[in-house]
Design a protein around this nucleic acid. Structure first.
Lengths: 188, 188, 188, 188
DNA sequence: TATGAATGAGTGTTCATTCAT
DNA sequence: TATGAATGAACACTCATTCAT
């Protein structure tokens, strides 16, 4: 594993431990027992490091989802698969997950603007599942796909954090419960 | 309104604008056109100021909930009232809500521990509603009250932020949709 | 003398000794045996400190010139008085003079623009003397007032530096020589 | 053109653009699209690079002067030729000229001593012209050759910068004016 | 109560230099 | 020759906190 990856990993671990607002480049250097210059050599600015961290996570998550999600069946099955895959990935990437959430929610420019503006594309796949279930498959009741998508994501994110923080340990149980919640609230 | 309250309000407004990690005591002083010493006189440390801000918010929220929530009817009605009251309060306290979320998620001690540990009591009223509906009223299906409570809170919190950030404007619509989601997923 | 003035003076002395490009805020603090924070407390940015230094010098120079320059006589006398006053002031403010020249010529923004753009107003009084001598008094020959003004200033500045660096010590002699040069080259 | 010359040229261009104090070895490397190591390979230290830059300029200037200056005539003609040649060279080497001035004035050792101490030999040719005009040719009035030499140089340097910065564009005009100034002030 | 001064640790960033390859 | 990695010191600037007045 190259220096860059080591720096990225150390960053995620650090942020998970001490929180984004206590995190600093110097502390990464310290954790890796190298000089601060090493970090800025590989990532000239703090923002670039954070972006690299986030990007790497999303790439891995996308790859995982691509491999594990089934999209060939009914809307309901697809949603269940989405919930399951996401929570499985989180379960296998606890530290990363906490760190990424912290980074995204809290990175700001000096002027106060969020560095990672809310990524609305995250709701898109869910919205499509819902529209398909409502308009084509007609298995879903009438509801706002946007609000439902936001709800699903928020529950998933909340459970993710709880899992990552090990407040919840029975991961299969959570998956089943969440699936049931959204089955009941979407199906006719 | 006394100095303390003015400081607290300015703090919330500032955090909403520039984010917790850009926030500093000096900037509050600046915003109020007083010297930094005034802040540290009333709140000897930064943590104490933050705690005062959070406490004030929760007190007001509790008072509001106490006035507006109906708890005399069925589990289902009580839950609906809970959702409605919470979102109404958020809608009337947008700036505060964003700030509080930011503070709670990001305040850490120098050692990295969260200053406001996750307050599990927040789930308690919901859990009680669910247990009542399952065990006494028997109108609710079988599900984990803890996971359901966490789900409801996460959806409420997510919608709160969206409302506070004005990504969502039709507040009555949201309330109706969220109520429906949890009606369907809890009732037998 | 207040802290601010002490900081300004120490800055000028330091720049004279080690040069603008070796100068740093930390070194001022060191020279004054105070913490670095003291400097940034009084002058929040380096630029502000430099501007304060330059401003103070120019105010003092203007005050001195106001007191010592005679402008009631002929163009030739006025020019001679200008040369004399300027060089006298320099002679009494050697350290300052070297420092100011260094600051003005070398202060740049991060983007490379000069912080103190060339101040063309410095040529104005000279240009007016020359125009008066040419058009009203008709004692001056025909020449470009702008180029002549630039020439006078450059000779004065050059002698100033030489005096400040003590490469030249007989100040009365220099004044006489410079006055003669520009008498001969301006008068008909 | 060899690597060394390319590095020297890029250095001069960079310094002209961003100023000596913003200049760094890394930026030269960047501008040339090579690694920083290339620079330090050819010029082990920054000082050596700067010295090479200055030396090259002076060699070229000397060569130009050697070719273009007429020294076979009267003191007055020789001085006029000196002024003309110098300003012509500057006019054809604007970028270099600005850069060199910046380097010479600002290069310092870590201890603060000037890297390029004032080169008094620069006054020598002028002093000789003046002495010749005063003592042999007897066409010059009585004045201090040293101060006159310093005056001529300062005016030339000032006009050079103005030309290089394109504050002055009519170069023939400047030459004529400067020549006239020093003709009037030297001749009996 | 309020101010202004001071401290000292910490931040991100830049950079000349060294060195193994 | 050239590269890329690494170092360590320096830089301007921010900030919570302390304290005399």
């Amino acid at each position: 594993m190259g220096r860059k990856d080591k720096i990225i990993d150390a960053t995620m671990e650090l942020i998970t431990q001490i929180g984004f607002s206590n995190f600093s480049i110097g502390k990464v250097a310290n954790a890796l027992n190298v000089s601060k210059g090493v970090i800025t050599y590989h990532f000239p600015t703090k923002d670039l490091l954070l972006k690299a961290v986030v990007t790497k996570y999303y790439e891995e998550a996308a790859a995982y989802m691509g491999q594990h999600m089934r999209i060939d069946k009914s809307a309901c099955d697809t949603l269940n698969s989405y919930i399951e895959s996401t929570l499985f990935f989180v379960n296998e990437n606890k530290v990363r997950t906490v760190a990424i959430a912290d980074i995204i929610l809290n990175s700001r420019t000096k002027e106060g603007e969020m560095l990672f503006k809310e990524d609305k594309t995250i709701y898109q796949p869910l919205i499509e599942i819902f529209k398909y279930g409502q308009e084509i498959e007609k298995s879903y009741r009438d509801f706002s796909p946007e609000i439902m998508a936001r709800s699903v994501r928020s529950v998933i994110d909340s459970m993710s954090l709880a899992i990552a923080r090990e407040e919840i340990t029975d991961i299969d149980d959570v998956i089943r419960e969440v699936q049931k919640i959204f089955e009941s609230s979407t199906l006719k």
